[in-house]
């Protein structure tokens, strides 16, 4: 099977609607198909990977923890819109530290999250075979 480039576009915060958790579930299921997968977080989607989420008070699953598993699923390209962070008063330090182990570099731990400008994101998007929006 030829490998295609899949990008999952996440634009909504985690708990107000089901978009975010649905996206993550689709990503995990699709990971079984050995495709080239990347995730983009823009607009309120950046809140999905903010550090320190605690859902005890709303009775919902804190699936932000699941993002830490993505490295095991060979999903290690998480692009975050720099402009979307700035608009929301967030910086790189507010995001979870998500890492993967690089098979080709003696399993060295490397960051999965990359903050990019909208212009860079435009280029990455136009390089995809499939973009799925959530």
């Amino acid at each position: 099977m030829a490998t295609k480039k899949f990008m999952y576009l996440n634009r909504k915060a985690s708990y107000g609607t089901a978009y975010a958790i649905e996206s993550l579930e689709v990503v995990l299921i699709a990971a079984a198909f050995d495709q080239d997968v990347s995730l983009a977080f823009i607009d309120d989607g950046v809140y999905q990977i903010v550090e320190g989420q605690n859902t005890d008070g709303i009775g919902m699953k804190n699936f932000s923890k699941t993002f830490h598993a993505l490295g095991d699923y060979d999903i290690n390209k998480l692009y975050v819109s720099a402009e979307s962070l700035v608009e929301r008063g967030l910086t790189a330090d507010d995001l979870m530290s998500l890492v993967y182990e690089d098979e080709d570099d003696d399993w060295a731990e490397k960051p999965s999250v990359k903050i990019v400008s909208n212009a860079e994101l435009t280029k990455i998007m136009s390089d995809q075979d499939v973009c799925l929006s959530f």
Binding site: L28, A32, K61, K65, T66, A69, D72, Y73
Partner: peptide, 14 residues
């Protein structure tokens, strides 16, 4: 830790 059950491939490796 992750709020999901691992896929078999991930489980095997771990």
């Amino acid at each position: 830790e992750y709020q999901i059950a691992p896929a078999v491939r991930v489980l095997t490796k771990a």
